[in-house]
């Protein structure tokens, strides 16, 4: 999946994360992260973002994230929404477990 337009999702409220994505053609996945819990969970937040992008087959994107203590499931949900908005896809194939 290619990212050619910007997409944003989330809020700056406690327990949420704002994720802004934009085109980064040929430069791989670049994550600029600010977080209230950066020292404790910075690596984990980056890992969730990387993993979700890989699942979507996105290889080139600039991600700017401002985290306010979001759970992994919130990070994933906000990133998927941002990608969905950037690519104008109405929904993703819901995972079946």
């Amino acid at each position: 999946m290619k990212i050619h337009q910007a997409g944003i999702a989330g809020t700056l409220e406690s327990s949420d994360i704002t994720i802004h994505i934009e085109e980064n053609e040929g430069k791989g996945i670049e994550i600029q992260l600010k977080s209230t819990v950066l020292n404790q969970f910075g690596n984990q937040i980056r890992h969730v973002i990387q993993e979700t992008l890989q699942e979507l087959g996105i290889t080139d994107v600039l991600v700017r994230a401002t985290d306010k203590g979001a759970l992994d499931c919130t990070i994933r949900a906000r990133l998927l929404t941002a990608v969905s908005r950037a690519t104008h896809s109405s929904c993703f194939p819901w995972e079946v477990k």
Binding site: G10, L71, C73, A77, T81
Partner: peptide
């Protein structure tokens, strides 16, 4: 609407 749907879906799958 799209953001809430994703958020509730992933929260229910996790929490």
């Amino acid at each position: 609407k799209d953001a809430a749907r994703q958020l509730v879906y992933h929260s229910l799958k996790t929490i």
